[in-house]
């Protein structure tokens, strides 16, 4: 099995496991405030690091390229409360323009 199928099926299995476990355990098990706080913060940490890695790295090298233009547009668009598809599409257009100019 190649890396793509492993990723596809492994991520699916893990995500389903969490969903299904949640439907089968008592609510009191996870009601601790610390669990709740950490649960809210984990996506913030992971998504922010994904923005960094996906924008500024190529394999394990730090690079600054056309993607930064796209992501800057996305940040401006979300700050201006524009809808998700508009922001993401705008980011793609900005990135493509810089890429083609180079």
């Amino acid at each position: 099995m190649n890396i793509y199928w492993m990723t596809a099926l492994g991520t699916s299995g893990a995500c389903f496991l969490f969903k299904y476990l949640g439907h089968n355990i008592p609510e009191s098990w996870l009601s601790h405030p610390r669990v709740q706080r950490i649960n809210l913060l984990i996506p913030v940490a992971l998504l922010s690091s994904l923005v960094a890695i996906q924008t500024f790295t190529d394999k394990t090298k730090i690079v600054v390229d056309h993607r930064m233009a796209g992501v800057s547009i996305a940040i401006a668009a979300f700050a201006a409360k524009l809808p998700f598809p508009v922001a993401v599409f705008g980011a793609a257009v900005a990135s493509a323009i810089i890429y083609r100019l180079n």
Binding site: G10, E27, Q54
Partner: peptide, 29 residues
């Protein structure tokens, strides 16, 4: 995977982001 990571890193990251669904499930059950 697109950034050159291995399947295990990809699965672990996807899984960690999926834990919150488990907490939603606890509320919904």
């Amino acid at each position: 995977v697109g950034a050159g990571g291995g399947a295990l890193s990809a699965i672990a990251t996807g899984a960690l982001l999926g834990t919150r669904n488990g907490l939603y499930a606890v509320r919904m059950a």
